[in-house]
Design a protein around this nucleic acid. Structure first.
Length: 199
DNA sequence: CTCTCGATGCGCT
DNA sequence: GCGCATCGAGAGA
């Protein structure tokens, strides 16, 4: 399998909406027991700063949100609803808390292992949700804070860019907060993509 | 198809 | 103790 260039620090150290849009089409890679598991990023959401009520960092710096306040290019992974993990990519400059939630992948490499992680699911449901993709790729809090720019177990490779015509934006899924948090169009996904989460 | 609801751990008030 | 950036099973239409 051809290995491509890995995304660099400068990619992540930009405006969060730009990073979110540009992450579509890139390849998330997980090395698990020496095996390559990967998928094309097809759906993401932006969480931007303390003024964003849906952002975990809205209430300031805590042990949990510290990674989001740190340097860009690191993985912010949290545990939710007592059973699921969600993977985010930290963006912007150190000190400004923001991240992009990876919400869905089109599985590309390591399908047999992903199927074992998510038994009795069709391939288009292996990673069509933030909790599902973490389960498929074996991503847990053990990887919280990992530097995607240098890590040997979790990183993102440059892949085919997605043209604007194929990109759709909507409000974010499943969030609470004020009117603004509920309506701002900070979810980016591929139009008519069978690997995206529904709704 | 749509809707409701339980599971289950932990960060924070 | 409350509530959560979810998922999937089950009921009803």
């Amino acid at each position: 399998m051809e290995n491509k260039a890995r995304l660099k620090r400068e990619f992540y150290a930009r405006d969060t909406l730009t990073v979110a849009r540009q992450l579509l089409g890139q390849r998330l890679v997980r090395i698990l027991d020496g095996q390559r598991l990967s998928g094309r990023i097809v759906e993401v959401e932006a969480y931007i700063g303390q003024a964003d009520q849906a952002c975990h960092a809205a209430r300031g710096l805590t042990p949990r949100t510290a990674v989001m306040f740190g340097p860009p290019g690191h993985a912010y992974i949290y545990f939710i609803y007592g059973m699921h993990h969600c993977l985010n990519v930290v963006t912007e400059q150190e000190g400004f808390p923001a991240a992009v939630l990876i919400r869905a992948l089109e599985p590309l490499e390591g399908l047999p292992i992903m199927r074992r992680h998510r038994p009795c699911r069709p391939d288009h449901e292996l990673a069509n949700g933030p909790g599902k993709l973490c389960q498929a790729l074996g991503i847990t809090r053990a990887l919280n804070g990992v530097d995607l720019v240098t890590s040997d177990v979790l990183f993102i490779e440059e892949d085919a860019p997605v043209p604007d015509e194929e990109v759709q934006t909507t409000p974010r899924i499943g969030v609470r907060g004020d009117e603004r948090a509920l309506t701002v169009p900070w979810r980016f996904l591929l139009r008519d993509c069978p690997f995206c989460s529904c709704r």
